[in-house]
Design a binder for these strands. Structure first.
Lengths: 239, 239
DNA sequence: GGTTGTCAAGAGCAGTGCTCTCGAAACTTG
DNA sequence: CAAGTTTCGAGAGCACTGCTCTTGACAACC
């Protein structure tokens, strides 16, 4: 078999294939450990044990524990991003407010199922950890859904600009850059509201998931929907 | 000296005093280590080394590392709570919106200075950690500031109820309990908005502190003020 | 004075991230 | 095909962690 490989075309040698497979297996086991014991409970030695090799061998694939964690963080961003994109697409023919509400519910559902991965990307970062460049792409997927949605709403006339609050020159240029990059013709007032709604989404999920609503709110589902419905109405129409 | 102690009235013996002092010293060193290396970098052994005793001796004062962490968490809640109360008191003669804006700015400032402690209480909880009963009191101080402020605004007529959004029976009873406990005569519509504003405050600080605005927002101060100003206007007047 | 309770210290266990070396296997090149 | 090179897994080892148990000394009480 290996003697008749089609040459250096597809992932080259058997060794390269084995390397890719093992990298994936390590990541898979790591993801399971992460889901079960949390980020700080992710032990390279334990993962190695389960994969069936000695700990030092894992370092051939991930140069440090943090690098394994980074790979899992990227996967998590991609998972929640794909989730948000799917939720938006599923309601593409509805109004902007409904689409955003759908995205909110999808993100929360994902967070509830993958609690530790959510905490990993939207909770406090691990202590000495600085997010490498490779994460910013996947991390942008969810915000991009929101921006695309707003751009649609502006062209369709669904989103009302309303009064533009006074803002500093620097903030105005930040918003201008954002508009140029990802949200053509979305006015500053709407972009500013979008940040508020985005912060409120993450804040509400955090309140629930990190226990700050304990003994206060009991019907989490209804509470979240209530909050996000108000927020998405606020998003499309200035108060 | 110790022979003429006034008897078993004030903290009894010299040993008890030494115990209290050492407990405080351990906590102080722990707080410094926490601020410097983060929660997961809080090493009981390192703290012991710096206090000048062997690690096992520390266990006489805190039965486990998590117990030391709990003590620090309570202190952090108290610190930010006191900070919020002071900010509210400093603007007591201003309007409700200004008072809340003041509280928001104060909490953010505290978070920027005490980043790791903020992450400890408002970021993702440490993995296996379940907040013990003793934390719920101090944790309530900031929300109580918001609720008291709203109660003031309702009696003074500053806060407009607006339309009450439809909500489930359970959520209504949650809000009723909250009203009975800490915010007399604040209507459901206002309480519901308060959760939104509270979530938005924490969400905005989290976005900034956990790096999600990197390369997007550059003037963090102005951005935060912009967002919170809108939020506090929204709080007092229904959209 | 003798008893009792408290305390710091030390040794030790099981676990961690990470580094280094070594031999064997797989691949590349002459 | 054979020699040389790269890659890989295994093992030992270092410095560290949280935590437990035992030992000996000191202070507090009867």
């Amino acid at each position: 078999m290996t003697t008749t490989t089609p040459g250096p075309s597809a992932s080259r040698t058997a060794r390269d294939r084995a390397r890719l497979e093992l990298t994936e297996e390590i990541k898979a086991v790591g993801r399971r450990h992460l889901a079960e014991h949390g980020a700080s409970g992710l032990s390279l030695r334990a993962v190695a044990r389960e994969v069936g090799m000695v700990s030092s061998a894992v370092y051939r694939y991930f140069p440090s524990r943090d690098d394994l964690l980074t790979a899992l963080i990227i996967d998590a961003y991609d998972a929640v991003g794909e989730c948000a994109e799917a939720a938006d697409a599923a309601a593409r023919d509805r109004g902007v407010a409904v689409r955003w509400l759908n995205v909110c519910e999808a993100i929360r559902s994902w967070a509830l199922v993958n609690a530790h991965e959510y905490a990993l990307i939207y909770g406090s970062p691990v202590p000495g950890y600085a997010a490498p460049e490779a994460t910013i792409g996947p991390a942008s997927r969810v915000p991009l859904v929101l921006l695309r949605l707003l751009a649609d709403g502006v062209t369709s006339g669904e989103v009302v600009a309303g009064d533009t609050p006074p803002m500093s020159r620097v903030v105005r240029s930040d918003l201008a850059l954002l508009r140029r990059t990802a949200a053509p013709s979305v006015p500053d007032a709407v972009l500013s509201r979008a940040f508020g709604v985005w912060a409120q989404l993450l804040g509400t999920i955090n309140l629930e998931m990190f226990g700050h609503l304990h003994n206060t709110i009991h019907d989490y589902d209804a509470f979240f929907t209530l909050q996000m419905r108000r927020a998405s109405e606020f998003l499309v129409q200035a108060g």
